[in-house]
């Protein structure tokens, strides 16, 4: 770049042209080549484990060994996929119900809390908010033992026998999702919700709830995208709670997958297909909504 002239014409419009280039044409030729080479290299590295999963899942179980993990299947079969689907379909359904409900509930609570902490504060709000945030960071091991006992106590109350498996997970993921959702919404509202509008609403005599439903909620979509994706993914991918709180008959897909992978006579195509089946919903979410996720992060949810 001709920097010497650029300095001289600091205010001049023509300089802007250099930044207005079409994507991919910025920098020198060598720079661009290196940049794309690196991007492709990292792309290959990131996709490598997925490659192993996919090729293995289409192989015949009889001739799969770890030493052939990199080679393409000699002949394709979907036996592994069928077997994986057969054993994972019920827990997959349970995971779906569990992760969707937990994501919705934590997002709603997070949105309400975020609104209060950002714009409708009360004395001690900062302290309480900080106490909430600490809940996000605790190692869940530190509460697992009493949690397990407490939930079993609830379950053994008369009429509460149904409270097992994914219902416990819904409660747990909803509650442990509150801190992060609150944080995301609070940061989002702090930038996306101008004080002036709230003041105007107040002048109009709107109470808190009306302000929330008529002003805050309509602009909350980007925040909800982020919290829903985040919560759905973390509830879906959780294994620790599933291990402690559920069993093979009522657990989510991560639990079932671990059983599939830990079996005595491992059927590798089935296991690898199982990994893909169990990850498909979250992969789809990221492929289809990843843009919005990053967009949501960019719209002020991060700081």
């Amino acid at each position: 770049m001709a920097t010497s002239t650029a300095t001289a014409t600091r205010e001049a419009i023509p300089v802007r042209v250099t930044t207005g280039q079409a994507p991919g044409t910025e920098g020198t030729m060598t720079g661009r080549v290196i940049r794309y080479a690196l991007i492709i290299l990292f792309l290959v590295m990131v996709l490598m484990p997925l490659y192993v999963l996919i090729v293995t899942s289409f192989k015949h179980s009889a001739n799969v060994t770890a030493s052939e993990a990199w080679s393409l299947p000699r002949s394709l079969t979907i036996d592994g996929w069928q077997a994986a689907w057969k054993s994972l379909a019920p827990p997959l359904g349970r995971s779906l119900i569990m992760a969707v409900i937990a994501a919705i509930l934590s997002s709603i609570l997070g949105s309400l809390n975020g609104f209060v902490f950002a714009r409708w504060r009360f004395p001690g709000a900062t302290t309480i908010f900080t106490l909430f945030l600490f809940g996000m960071f605790i190692p869940y091991q530190a509460i697992m033992i009493p949690l397990q006992g407490m939930l079993i106590d609830v379950q053994s109350q008369p009429g509460m026998g149904w409270f097992d498996g994914i219902w416990k997970l819904i409660v747990v993921h909803t509650i442990f999702g509150i801190p992060i959702c609150t944080l995301i919404f609070r940061n989002y509202y702090a930038t996306a919700l101008p004080n002036e509008i709230l003041e105007a609403a107040k002048v109009d005599g709107a109470g808190m709830l009306r302000t929330y439903t008529s002003i805050v909620l309509p602009i909350s979509a980007p925040g909800f995208v982020v919290t829903m994706i985040w919560q759905f993914t973390s509830a879906w991918n959780d294994f620790l709670f599933a291990l402690f709180l559920t069993n093979r008959n009522n657990g989510p897909v991560t639990y079932a997958l671990n059983e599939l992978a830990g079996g005595q006579n491992p059927n590798y195509p089935q296991i690898m297909a199982g990994v893909l089946v169990a990850s498909l919903p979250t992969l789809l979410v990221y492929i289809l909504l990843g843009r919005y996720f990053i967009g949501g992060l960019m719209s002020g949810s991060v700081k």
Partner: peptide
Amino acid sequence: FRSVYLLPMAISFIA
């Protein structure tokens, strides 16, 4: 590229 780099995050540790 962004989506691909982000992709592993969608997969659980256990998987």
